[in-house]
Design a protein around this nucleic acid. Structure first.
Lengths: 262, 262
DNA sequence: GAGTGGTCTAGACCACTGT
DNA sequence: CAGTGGTCTAGACCACTCC
């Protein structure tokens, strides 16, 4: 026999899909639901936990459980990289018009809030291995947050590392107040004579840390994508390592692989 | 103040990383752990649930909780597509030697068990939209499972769809007993005159269905990758749509994007 | 202050595993 | 059969939100 909380979760899913419960609707209180389904509150909470992990409902402490508005998925395509490379050499007036997040989401610049912080750090074992440099090498660490609107949760948490020695010849690159930089990282690299040859992305999924869940506004049970983007220049040198955390429930990654012709 | 179950989970994580609990070790019974950490069994189970979702422990019903052996990650690179395309035109004797799963895992053919089932189906709305054909169009549905060893859980669940009309000219392609087909899908397509131009992959993450969790042997809280691979031929026609479910805790997806030179 | 979800307790009973 | 984890109950008390 199926587990009780699964049967209840199924019944609720059914109600949502059939439209008896519409996006934005508040569900009855958990005590009321428990009574309705002839079960205890903890079992009811197990059932709601399934819907929560699937992103079908939002729990709001002290307020109630709500059917979630079908949030538009944020699409992140690897074609953004070539797009960014092309854009990096445009005139500044062109580069100012739009950034990568707009490219992904279709939103316009004015809808977005942006935050960047820079820091100088030393390479730990992990980063040293990827950059092929000694542990302790100076790196420029840059954290980015892009918000759909002020007050909302960010789309992603980005932590980028650059080889300090590679970028310090242009002091503007060391100052976070120049962000958002028109033309993005590839334009920044262009100012110190670096051209990218290829980008390697490694993707895993795992439960968020408590801090990540907090910052991204994730419900319990939702996993995150961890994407490590490694930028390699025309001299086969790793010049940037960027770690991106994205909510698994609303993100779609798209990769196009062209094949050589026969 | 931090939640009790989080503090306990942290303490256990610590013990595992410090090596006081080694891979393969059995943890004390949950009742014993609850007593040790001065808490109730349900709270203890919440703490263990965190480690479970992170893949640090295995729960085995009726047996106990075990520190997990650090399972090797299965890497799936998009370079496999070009590799497969090159392999598709080799002599059969060459093609027999190795398949894509071996390419991903580094295992040899003899370590692997393989299962394929074919079925004829009609396109639902979803598939019809991707193929750009009317709903109800005949499709060949193929399910694949590859196991590390007989009896173990498969690496992934693969469900592939081909346009029936595109492949039926070669009856060998309709018979599952010809699997594993030396040279893979791209060689199969070659026999009916189809060459692939590019592959588009769309990736999301979500909790597994009950069936997926069962078949992949997933612990509670572990998410799966859902990868939809769309193969497009040199005439810009979608010829294959393949849905792949992979465990999020042991899979690493790798994508390399080459950039045009300035 | 009323009502909501969040955490935690204590314990019953069932299902599974290995001996 | 003994011991383990799995499910479920009943209810206390806290934290948060909104009126």
């Amino acid at each position: 026999m199926a587990k009780k909380y699964e049967r209840i979760a199924d019944a609720l899913r059914q109600s949502i899909r059939a439209g008896q419960l519409k996006p934005g609707d508040r569900l009855p209180a958990e005590t009321a639901l428990a009574e309705q389904y002839k079960t205890s509150v903890p079992t009811m909470r197990d059932a709601l936990g399934e819907l929560l992990a699937e992103g079908l409902i939002d729990k709001r402490h002290g307020v109630g459980n709500f059917v979630r508005e079908p949030r538009p998925r944020v699409e992140r395509s690897n074609q953004r990289h070539q797009w960014e490379k092309n854009r990096a050499r445009l005139l500044e007036s062109e580069r100012l018009k739009t950034g990568s997040t707009e490219h992904d989401t279709g939103l316009t610049v004015s809808d977005l809030a942006f935050k960047a912080t820079y820091r100088e750090v030393k390479a730990d074992e992990d980063l040293a291995a990827v950059f092929s440099v000694p542990v302790g090498t100076r790196l420029l660490e840059r954290e980015y947050r892009t918000f759909p609107r002020e007050g909302d949760a960010p789309f992603s948490l980005v932590c980028s590392h650059l080889l300090y020695s590679a970028v310090s010849s242009n002091p503007d690159l060391l100052d976070a107040s120049n962000e958002p930089w028109p033309g993005g990282t590839q334009n920044q690299l262009l100012t110190v004579g670096i051209e990218l040859d290829r980008i390697v992305e490694r993707i895993t999924a795992r439960p968020p840390t408590a801090e990540e869940a907090e910052e991204l506004g994730l419900q319990k049970g939702v996993s995150v994508f961890v994407l490590r983007k490694i930028s390699i220049d025309t001299g086969d040198r790793v010049v940037e390592v960027s770690d991106v955390i994205m909510p698994g429930d609303v993100t779609e990654l798209v990769f196009t692989t062209p094949l050589d012709r026969w």
